[in-house]
Nucleic acid binder design. Structure first.
Lengths: 335, 335
DNA sequence: CGCGGCTATTTTAGCGCTAAAATAGCTATG
DNA sequence: CATAGCTATTTTAGCGCTAAAATAGCCGCG
């Protein structure tokens, strides 16, 4: 921190001199311990520690033409589902001796910049969310040879993909409401650009409603699928659309939970008058009263699996190009 | 992605050849546009685009001896407060033409590895949470000359710090309860190793209670300050300790909110019988009923300010070493 | 005791870029 | 029209590391 006029950090050659070996032996002591004798290795490690030596990854990556870094570009990590996903990525990386670096990408421009940075760092792998990217991003990715996993959404992957079929989950939620005798079922959506995983839902919902012979037009949008103000907002819009609505499918548990709160405030019985299904199985889902029926994806498995796919990509030829981690409909009190 | 047998990505020399200039001109066209003529710059950019050229950051960082990357090691980003903080970091970086890379550091080992990676990448700056680090981390940081900002907590910074005084906030919360006539005030804590920002609170709480002539022993711990199961757990422990408790200060709004839910379930009137203060002003605080009285730090300002401090560090000599972003006690319905 | 077959270590030769120095090409000026 | 004083571009010389090739040192065996 402070020295600032330090003549620069210790280099590998400094360590080599201190330990009376060549630079290459220092390199080997770190990267390929089995190549050096135990005694030599210890001597090197001691000298390195003494000098506060930290390998210059830029130099190493340049010389080796590769790195042990996996880059992930993720949008707003603000719910426990994403947290588990990132944890899965992190643990996957640790298990393979790699480092995970995360860059925030709420917009397509940010995603493109993140991808540029990962390619620039010659990352060993790249993980993105969804399959809706800036054409420039796709172009960059196509020209690089870094393995890529797109996650959460299955579709037509650029390279590999891991996630679940949202349309199946939407159908499962619809059928659950129908089976419970609900007739006026509504969907709360969100169609900000770039949020493909929400935009897939309405068409599937409409199709499923038509098949059941029920109204397919009970759809409203909220601005912010992760904000607690969206539940009340959606409820207002829904009741304005049709006062007799008796079931709702929300885009996230946050929307569902805040809708449950709002119902309690207005004296609307849940699930008596309105049944509510959330999405994500966030922690709040099982804690509030009534607890939330929700669609549970498997975020940790997605994260962990994404890294496994990246790691296997090079090695064996028989690696999976697409992995379905499935989902569960967790039935609780709200619907 | 797939080629994988591509003879490698385009290099700066390839672009130079395609544009009929020297490699250095390509470099300048990217890094110092004003040094090359507009016509040349366009020619270079076109060639670069054509070839899908992405600068090798490893090579650039090595040659320049520095990078435009800021590294931040953050624990579990799972609440809206941290989200705003990281957004502040991100926007600060963008404003200064730098990239933010985030590494997850829930444990001290992970923090040390993150710091090693940042130093290894020759980051332009490092941001950490709190001031409680592994000695090895402190050692590494001390031997490097990368500017460092520790955030959230003010104390004795290794280099620079930005945050607020938690002890002042604890006193403000205590006094608020006392002023409202509460006599049996409790504190919910958490003492996992590495969570310094929770462990500072009990001593201050005790001191403040003694000054007010009130019991200073009403303290319980929860395992998980960010989980919705902690509120019920803390309430149980608290009532077992003293059935007459009439006020609580929680470590986070998540604990406070789940305690409010649990009180509703048990028919305990909030704030009638028990007043509850949360911490963080997460989104849920203003949405539930009764809404939460809470301590609000300024996470976005912390993040943004942290980057500003890093950027000013080198330039002017008169940079601030410590910045207090303060806090607010937001009074709502719960206490 | 000389030589193949080891293993541990060193030497060699860059990786792709950029700071700094050198050069080329131009204009204004006496 | 030679020269100082520009600006735009190129040349030179590494940054700190690692893959691959070369070497040194040692063993056992005929």
């Amino acid at each position: 921190m402070k020295p600032s006029r330090g003549q620069g950090t210790a280099t590998m050659q400094d360590v080599a001199d201190a330990a009376n070996v060549s630079a290459m032996t220092v390199s080997n002591a770190f990267r390929h311990p089995h190549r050096v004798q135990e005694a030599t290795r210890l001597k090197v490690l001691e000298a390195a520690f003494e000098l506060g030596y930290v390998p210059n990854l830029a130099a190493g990556n340049l010389a080796a033409g590769k790195s042990r870094v996996i880059g992930a570009a993720v949008p707003s990590v603000r719910n426990s589902s994403f947290y588990k996903y990132v944890t899965g990525l992190q643990e996957g990386c640790e298990a393979h001796g790699h480092k995970l670096i995360v860059m925030l990408a709420d917009t397509m421009r940010q995603e493109r910049e993140a991808v540029e940075t990962f390619i620039g760092l010659r990352a060993a792998g790249i993980v993105l969310i969804g399959n809706d990217h800036d054409p420039a991003t796709v172009d960059l990715l196509g020209k690089s040879s870094i393995p890529l996993v797109e996650s959460w959404l299955l579709g037509e992957p650029l390279d590999m993909a891991i996630g679940y079929h949202i349309d199946e989950a939407v159908r499962a939620a619809c059928r659950h409401h129908v089976a419970a005798g609900r007739r006026r079922i509504a969907l709360v959506g969100n169609d900000r650009p770039g949020t493909r995983r929400f935009r897939e839902r309405p068409p599937v919902f409409r199709d499923e409603m038509r098949r059941a012979g029920l109204p397919d037009n009970l759809i409203v949008d909220v601005d912010e699928p992760h904000g607690f103000s969206s539940g009340p907002q959606a409820l207002d819009a829904l009741l304005a659309l049709d006062g007799e609505i008796d079931a709702v499918i929300c885009p996230t548990d946050v929307v569902a939970a805040s809708m449950v709160f709002e119902c309690a405030r207005r004296g609307i019985d849940v699930p008596g008058r309105i049944a509510i299904i959330g999405w994500g199985d966030y922690e709040i889902a099982s804690t509030i009263s009534p607890s939330l029926t929700t669609v549970k994806p498997h975020p940790w498995e997605m994260g962990h699996g994404a890294i496994a796919m990246l790691m296997e990509n090079g090695s064996a030829g028989h690696s999976q190009r697409t992995v379905d981690t499935g989902f569960e409909l967790i039935v609780r009190e709200s619907g």
